[in-house]
Design a protein around this nucleic acid. Sequence first.
DNA 1: ATGGTGGTTAGACCA
Length: 271
Amino acid sequence: MTKTLSIATWNINSVRLRIDLVTRFLAEQQPDVLCLQETKCPNDAFPHAAFEKAGYRYRTIAGIKGYNGVAIVSRLPIAPVEAREMCGKPDARHICARLGEGADAITLHNFYVPAGGDIADPEANPKFAHKLAFLEELTRFSETARKTDPRSVLVGDLNIAPLEHDVWSHKQLLDVVSHTPIETKGLMETIATGDWIDAMRLLSPEPKKLYSWWSYRSPDWDKADKGRRLDHVWLGKGLDGALKAGHFFRETRGWERPSDHVPVMVTLDLS
DNA sequence: ATGGTGGTTAGACCA
């Protein structure tokens, strides 16, 4: 018997405004688990009923008013795990859950890394300083997490496109926050320190271009195709060999009133 | 070099 598990991640940019896009994606792709970022939704306003109706009965959410916010929704039972308060701020950028039981169990971490503002200088820009501090903390935390449970999965909007072919123009984006050397080296260091597998790159190595985000500010985003890979799925070595498939759902960027990010989904074979 | 587009929520803040 083959046991598969599919996990998707999507920066939805307001789960309430785009709940119909979320339920459409769930109906069409039927991931077992969906991790959301930028829900922009206080916990008491989370659209539970729509997820319940869609068959995603198991949920753990961490939202604040106005911005940030993360959630894990699942059609399989999940057990919430205590979230990490990153950089000492209660700003809803991490949530965690356990999936399954016994030897099959997996620990799933869902992160929303700070975007970092416009100026790539931590002295001049506190938001960039926060992003770099977050990245340092992510490196240490994720190494511990993966060692604690080798069957860990880390997903989310990490707001960094680490590789040359994770952006439409490596040269033109070297000074642009999300692809500066200090960020790309930092994220590669996080991967190396934690001994993570970059799932989408395992399936589609460089030099294939991979994008998960296209700016709202770019007219004709599809034709211009000035994308970046900001959304990631990492696997702990305890899941080495389990990765069966992965996909970026680019078509959702063309849906009406879209998120600027598209879902990424992986399928694991746990048999 | 600039401004381009969105969401949240009530004048900015965030991306």
